[in-house]
Design a binder for these strands. Structure first.
Length: 423
RNA sequence: GUGGGGGUAGCUCAGCAGGUUAGAGCUCCAGGUUGUGGCCCUGGUGGCCGCGGGUUCGAGUCCCGUCCCUCACCCCA
């Protein structure tokens, strides 16, 4: 190694080497395709925002705000934060650009990097990538259903089959307040059986106790009141309609009344998509309706639904399943037999590339044999060999590597012959 | 922040009743084939055995400390 210090990528961040980034890119291509087909337009927001945007939207008490944000001051002393989630920045942009004026309904999507200071583990990094969409303007259940169908379709087109969609409704403010009281009333007598964190949540955020992973608590919760019994008529009708639309769209789902999302801004519909082979962090996607958020951020009262999904987790889910498709780029490797041909090799390589053919050559001045080995290693379809004899004749040897067949072609005809698919 | 597992070659790992020059497979390079890849054969490059200290005649191996990675809890995508 030689040097005193080895630099390393910092905890929770990682490099994507070419092989992997190729796979990620193909997933992202699918995302872009489906989003565009469904009428969603891409939005790109800055890497950091005013800190208060997140404390206001995500919830002062949430873990994200209390301990996971990368926050720093700029030269003027303003507190800035690397974005830990994307709904708030997108809503900020929506309000800032008065996008509501451009049409009653606004459909946006994004693919972006986020930052949270957590202890890394399988499927969780400190810099991670999400894609998501927000449908802003419609309060109606078919919009909830479309958003759910959108992620579901993307995940399916990516090739994931072993996924489960969980949905629930946490009602709007009124229903939820009534339910919260009922839940606290139910749990308080059992307070001593609860974990330390759940006891604290009994004060701060009782609904979150519902999706505790503790078996004991889950047993206790079996008899707890259900949020679904506390929905008011409007909430209930909305929820029933969402399920109805999903059925009509043939999107399979499981009702999960214990599912409560972590971010404070959700209302009514919440959903999650999980995969069994991603480790303990099994949620690939989370989302729901947030009818109050835009107002809370200073905009006009505007209903909206959205979701966010984790790219790294999706990649994990894929590795288990289908074999990665072999990408066979038709490559031509141009080989110099002797140093005299270097010039001609470089020229021909450039001509082929200009013709749209992917081509490469050896800049290490290695032996002919080594160059042929390289051509094979790259799984090139053809090796084009130029030596002194060929130089003199204005030709080249064109070898088809799978068959081993080799012919002499005039140099001038090579790129057109290869691009027209001859041989 | 808490707990489990782990750091030996570019990669995957073996070696640990402490004992001479630290190993294998893969990769890479060269030769066998003086202008031709794959398969095969031969040889070679490449290691502060994470770091610091201690015990010992002797430490990759034992002890202490420390850093890093990883899985899980918490929480979330």
């Amino acid at each position: 190694m030689g040097s005193e210090q080895q630099f390393k990528s910092i905890k929770g961040t990682r490099d994507l080497l070419p092989e992997e980034s190729t796979r990620v890119r193909s997933v992202e291509t699918t995302i872009h395709d489906v989003m565009n087909r469904w009428g969603y337009g891409e939005i790109r927001t800055p890497a950091f925002e005013q800190t208060e945007l997140f404390t206001r939207s995500v919830g002062e008490e949430s873990d994200i705000v209390t301990k996971q944000m990368y926050t720093f001051s700029d030269q003027s002393g303003t507190s800035l934060t690397l974005k830990p989630e994307l709904t708030a920045p997108v809503m900020r942009a929506y309000i800032e650009h008065d996008m509501a004026r451009g049409g009653a309904l606004t459909k946006l999507y994004y693919i972006d990097d986020l930052f949270r200071q957590e202890r890394p583990q399988k499927g969780r990094l400190r810099q991670f990538r999400q894609f998501g969409a927000e449908a802003i303007g419609s309060p109606h259940p078919e919009q909830d259903a479309e958003i759910v169908a959108l992620v579901y379709t993307i995940l399916t087109e990516i090739g994931l089959d072993d996924i489960t969609l969980h949905i629930n409704s946490i009602g709007s403010d009124n229903s939820r307040n009534v339910f919260r009281h009922a839940l606290v009333e139910f749990l308080t007598p059992h307070k001593s059986d609860l974990s330390e964190t759940s006891q604290r949540r009994l004060q701060t955020n009782p609904l979150r106790i519902l999706d505790s992973k503790s078996e004991e608590e889950q047993k206790l919760l079996k008899n707890a009141p259900s949020i679904l019994d506390y929905l008011d008529d409007d909430d209930r009708a909305h929820y029933e309609d969402v399920k109805h639309f999903l059925e009509r769209m043939n999107i399979p789902f499981a009702e999960n009344k214990m599912m409560v999302r972590g971010l404070d801004y959700y209302t009514r519909t919440t959903f999650e998509i999980t995969s069994p082979n991603v480790g303990a962090q099994d949620a690939l996607c989370g989302g729901g309706r947030y009818d109050k958020l835009i107002e809370d951020l200073g905009g006009k009262q505007t209903p909206a639904v959205g979701f966010a999904a984790g790219i790294e987790r999706i990649m994990l889910a894929m590795e288990q399943g289908d074999e990665d498709s072999d990408q066979k780029a038709p490559r031509v490797y141009v080989v110099a037999a002797g140093d005299a041909a270097r010039n001609a090799v470089l020229k021909l390589t450039m001509d082929l590339r200009a013709e749209g053919i992917s081509a490469d050559f050896d800049s290490l001045r290695r032996s002919l044999k080594a160059q042929m080995r390289e051509a094979n290693r790259l799984s090139a379809s053809h090796a084009v060999i130029i030596g002194e004899k060929e130089l003199a004749a204005g030709t080249a040897q064109v070898k088809t590597l799978v068959s081993g067949e080799q012919d002499t072609w005039p140099l001038k005809e090579i790129s057109s012959n290869l691009s027209s698919g001859q041989v």
